[in-house]
Amino acid sequence: MQPETADAGFEVRKGVREFVLVAFPVAMFGVMFGAASSAAGYSVGVTVWSSAAIFAGASQFVFLDVYRQGIPVWSVALAVFAVNFRHILYSAALARKIAHFSFVQKTAALFLLTDLQFAIVEKRYEAERGRWRVAPAFYFAFGICSYCLWLVTTGLGAVFGALIEDPAVIGFDFVLPIYFLSILMGFRARRSFLPVVVVSAAAALLAQKWFGPPWHISLGGICGILAAGILTAIRGDKPVEIGDAMMQPPGGEGADNG
């Protein structure tokens, strides 16, 4: 293993530069989430708090979608857990690469672990394979910029959103399914994409008809997961090493913040 890059200033500049390249879509998603949160009736303070506490676009949109009257909190938590499940795979893949971070650095670094953060770290690690170990200065420069921009833009979106009297006029009453579709399509290069989507959709529709919400989410999800596992078992693939390239981030890099 090479010694740590001596120049932290260089790493910080590099992290900030990487961030600037992807800042625009993050900002757009931030404004959209803020406006959608306002449209759902939440104050600017609650909206920014959601960004500060969760810091994951998809989780926050799931909250807007699923947290309604009559839906138990455990079910909202389960949906958030499942939608963010990919982070478990990211953090497993990252584990060896940040083994040299201190305990506090690891604790903070994993809090900042978004799709984008993972993609940027993996990209540079691959490009400079063997010559670079993940520098905390680089990691945190990127991560802290993301966090700040996310808080600011979701706050701005909430302020703008509060000015819109009727969200339906700009279609914002239906922004959540469209947002989730755009995230879903990022996975379309996966081999199991089509079978999983078809099985989950069919199971969700049946579960909604028979049991009502929120069962369509958990039952639909479980059926899709089983479909993926069973298909792979039928193909008889070999066990997979944990670590390098175990998990590719969804397509459309720079797409979603978390």
Binding site: R86, F193, S200, A204, L205, Q208, A228, G229, T232, P239
Partner: peptide, 24 residues
């Protein structure tokens, strides 16, 4: 190492759940 079916099941979790938020 993890068995391939478990891995592909784990990888499918977000796809499967997000589908249920789009299609119905």
């Amino acid at each position: 190492r993890i068995p391939a079916p478990v891995k592909s099941g784990l990888e499918a979790v977000p796809m499967a759940v997000i589908t249920t938020l789009v299609v119905p």
